[in-house]
Design a protein around this nucleic acid. Structure first.
Lengths: 367, 367
DNA sequence: TTGAAAGCGCTAACAA
DNA sequence: TTGTTAGCGCTTTCAA
């Protein structure tokens, strides 16, 4: 039972297969499979022979053949708007980390916020039979999109996989999805409350795409906080548009130029806050002495702004990790917190330097 | 030849296969395959029947079976240090974009800068038979790692795939890799030259891991520029350590406290520059009035710092796109610029606001 | 502890 | 224009 021949080596282009290994080791492919997977007893000597053959031949198992035969792909899919936006990239990092920890590879795709593309990408991941498909980020209120998404959730459930909505509202009660969310409304309420307690009355809500679930909820939290303190929210105090630094900068510049009377700004996310801060600094407006500023998400760079940004902490990486854990957990694990297929992660206000009591003389009324 | 039966629908858990579709449409699987791939003529009526069956059944092709039968995976792999670092995430974005444009999915993995893990990840991608494996970022001078990498390059070539080194030096002449690089030494030379022309003589080189190819090259460019102008580079003017905001901040704070006599700082990358800028701002040092500052990479947020950072532009996203194009291009495309399997992308100094002529009285000597 | 053999779901000659 | 028939490379009973 020694090595048989050399002919299996380097068959031009034609890659080395398990049959080649079996032949060289003088065993059957079944045995090779067994030593590879270590799921059945194999004699030590046989094991060694096989390992040697694998080394000699430079064999690397074909994951597709494996997936086909065993219907286990060891992969997860994740779909985000934009790979460069820190909100998404931290979540992707968490997903990749957890996937990797559980021996899985991570297929990522960017939808650019396009609903059709998102659905198409989910379909491609269904094709790949990934163990989970994680869709990240807010969505617009669109019954059609929800229906199509629910269909995919069913298709995934049908192949033993799971659709996870990460930071996105449910697509319907009966859809077999799992959800990893965080409290947008509550966080917005809390941080607005914080500003009000500091003494602010004229608080501007800045940014967030109109109608996107995330911003809708944040705006709602802001409104509820204002109303619960008997404060009015006239239309000029709400300026929606986008999530992004550029938007924050442009809009804030305009607002400062218009001398709108506000003593604090609640930016819909940290990127908008960073842009707004730039605009204020450029205009000579001091934060927080002249105008207070808060954000949302607590992306790491927020604590590196000058002044450090007061914001609402969202554990992005943890949400990513939790998304894959939840997807992979068995539904019948009745004792775990996962039992109901939905996790709502708590948020909390992180008080740093960018918000303080309003000045005696509002900035807008000076000069 | 109308639909035969309903029994194929919803076979619990057991997903819908091409056979189910064929049966329902009353054709053979070969025909189904043909309408799916559109690579052979099929009668319109047949086509319609098949499409209807696909819809009715909610069929989604199994990518693994497809890959196994056709040995075409339509996927690319990319390995980076960290998905959250803008240097890498912009490259990943470019790769994902180009992959997506060419109908491919993108498998991403993070190595955390660990060489063994990187090799392991490449092996997993070989298992996946991706059309290309793109390894991003500098490397340490390590013959062993280079040899193992060269082995993988050969393995990939053996299965008709390609190893692309993106922003990383060659692993040996005979290794069948393709390279997408950019000029670290030249860019560093140019930006140092820029500072010297402005009148600076005491220029600090800050950051970059010791021995990492990227920082080695940047430091070399800096040294060459200094020497070509007859300027000394005493050891206290070179402070290496890491690529990262935190490092830039900590190191710069210390340097300011030590009152080291410098009029300009060349940060090894923009992240280090951003950290250094923070430290300077916090210490009341004005940029560029008191000390000039330049970076490297030109990540988009660099133009949003205050002051806007003068730096060396590296087209990160483009490098990502180019990596997949190069990998996918045929070697025998003798007319293209790809013919030699290596692309060196040009870099250029972007002059913005953070570097100016030195002050008459150096900051360090005041008070 | 090992081998033989039947698939997994699809593609691609080869015929018809 | 369509069907038949081999595989692709692996896993997994079932026997031995």
């Amino acid at each position: 039972m020694t090595t048989q021949s050399e002919r299996a080596t380097m068959r031009g282009g034609h890659s080395v297969t398990m049959t080649d290994v079996a032949e060289r080791a003088g065993v059957s492919t079944a045995t090779v499979s067994r030593v590879l997977n270590g799921n059945y007893p194999v004699a030590q000597a046989t094991k060694d022979a096989v390992k040697r053959a694998i080394d000699d031949l430079g064999y690397t198992a074909n994951a597709h053949a494996r997936a086909l035969a065993s219907s286990a792909t060891h992969s997860v899919g994740i779909i985000v708007n934009d790979l460069v936006d820190p909100f998404f990239s931290y979540i992707v990092r968490g997903v990749e980390q957890e996937a990797s920890t559980t021996g899985r590879l991570c297929i990522v795709a960017a939808s650019q916020g396009d609903v059709d593309r998102e659905i198409e990408l989910i379909d491609r991941m269904i094709s790949q039979r990934t163990d989970a498909v994680i869709v990240v980020g807010g969505a617009y209120d669109d019954a059609g999109a929800r229906r199509r998404m629910a269909e995919r959730a069913r298709a995934l459930a049908g192949i033993g996989s799971t659709l996870v909505l990460c930071g996105r509202p449910s697509v319907g009660d009966k859809a077999p999805t799992k959800i990893v969310g965080y409290d947008n409304e509550g966080g917005a309420f809390a941080v607005t409350e914080h500003l009000i307690s500091l003494g602010h009355r004229r608080i501007l809500y800045l940014g967030g795409p109109v109608g996107l679930s995330t911003s809708v909820a944040r705006l709602a939290g802001y409104r509820r906080a204002m109303q619960s303190r008997g404060l009015d929210v006239p239309t000029e105090l709400v300026r929606q548009g986008a999530f992004g630094r550029r938007f924050g900068h442009a809009e804030m510049s305009e607002i400062l130029a218009s001398k709108l009377d506000v003593t604090a700004v609640f930016a819909a996310n940290d990127l908008v806050a960073a842009g707004a801060l730039d605009a204020m600094t450029a205009a000579g407006v001091r934060v927080p002495e002249d105008i207070s500023l808060v954000g949302y998400d607590d992306i790491p760079q927020s604590s590196e702004l000058t002044p450090k940004l007061t914001t609402v902490h969202v554990p992005l990486e943890e949400m990513g990790r939790e998304s894959v854990r939840l997807a992979l957990s068995q539904d019948d694990d009745a004792f775990g917190r996962h039992a109901d297929g939905e996790i709502i992660i708590g948020t909390r206000v992180v008080v740093r330097e960018s918000a303080a009591a309003p000045a005696a003389t509002p900035w807008a009324s000076r000069r």
